[in-house]
Design a binder for these strands. Structure first.
Length: 293
DNA sequence: CACTTGACCTGTCCGC
DNA sequence: TGCGGACAGGTCAAGT
């Protein structure tokens, strides 16, 4: 999916675009993308006003005046696109979305009192939308177990080291992809952070020194922040709440750069498989663990 | 408990 | 041009 920077970018867009609007119509078909009972959805969403938009890990939380919260996970290909009545002009992507949405990937449509619309699109249907009473949000299994927010000050070296210690037998890449260790890292920023730290992704956690783990913590924080500044990464499907692509991929050091030179040493970036995921490394900067040699 | 693998879906790309 | 297989940004269930 969209990883932390992409979800954060969507969150900021929605905060600006939909807070204060009132829902008048919901079209959610009979789809696993929105498993709530229709009666419940109508009762607590129709005539509800959007009061707040927040993010926890890769989950978006849209709070309503009815004391209910819409929880949304975009997974791999989800999009949340707002379409208002205004035209942006000059070939802005939102303008073509006005004419092209809904499309065959649209799972949920929310119509607001000023006739603007919010579309939840999801090609692969892994994502979901759920409506919950506010007090039930923290009871969700994922919310119960998810780890600390990397961009909050409490995500210290000590917290990172103690959390990752539970995964000492697995590879460092699998460990940082584990949402219970820290929230928000996905395949792109795992590879980027490990390259920045000169750690091979297949290295066992127990074979990474505390010094290197501390470097990794800082690099993960830095790459997430940089990507937010660039509006996230558009690898394929991702767009923000106005249909714009993110530009982080132009700055990526290894992700999807196989066959290209390493920015640091000039060696050719390689692609392999670690933790069941496509993995990008510099063969010179990130020396593989002995068992792979 | 820790760890790995396959499943969930649709679409696209690559080799034959 | 068609077909089969691998692969795609994430999590979860089931297996060892």
């Amino acid at each position: 999916m969209p990883e932390l920077p992409e979800v954060e970018t969507v969150k900021r867009g929605l905060e600006r675009l939909i807070v204060g609007k009132t829902i008048v119509v919901i079209d959610h078909g009979s789809d696993k993308s929105f498993p709530n009972d229709h009666t419940q959805v109508d009762a607590f969403m129709i005539n509800a006003t959007i009061t707040k938009v927040t993010r926890r890990a890769k989950v978006l939380l849209i709070e309503l005046s009815t004391e209910y919260t819409i929880m949304i996970h975009l997974k791999m290909t989800g999009q949340l696109v707002f379409v208002g009545s205004e035209r942006f002009g000059a070939g802005h992507p939102n303008d073509s979305l006005v004419d092209n949405l809904p499309d065959k990937s649209t799972r949920v449509t929310i119509v607001f009192n000023d006739d603007s619309k919010l579309f939840f699109n999801d090609q692969r249907r892994f994502g979901w939308v759920k409506l919950l009473p506010n007090h039930m949000v923290k009871e969700e299994p994922f919310m119960q177990k998810v780890g600390p927010e990397p961009l909050h000050p409490e995500f210290s070296d000590e917290v990172f080291l103690s959390r990752i210690a539970r995964r000492k037998g697995t590879t460092i890449k699998a460990a940082i992809l584990d949402q219970t260790v820290l929230a928000g890292i996905g395949n792109i920023y795992a590879d980027e952070g490990l390259w920045m730290s000169k750690i091979h992704p297949a290295t066992r956690v127990k074979d990474v020194s505390n010094k290197k783990l501390k470097e990794l913590r800082q690099n993960l924080v830095d790459v997430l922040q940089l990507s937010i500044d660039k509006g996230g990464s558009t690898n394929k499907n991702y767009v923000d709440a106005e249909g714009n692509k993110g530009s982080y991929m132009e700055f990526a050091k290894v992700f999807r750069r196989e066959g290209k030179p390493c920015n640091r040493c000039g060696a050719t970036i390689e692609k392999s498989r670690v933790a069941g995921r496509g993995t990008h490394t510099c063969p010179d900067c990130q020396s593989p663990p002995k068992k792979l040699l």
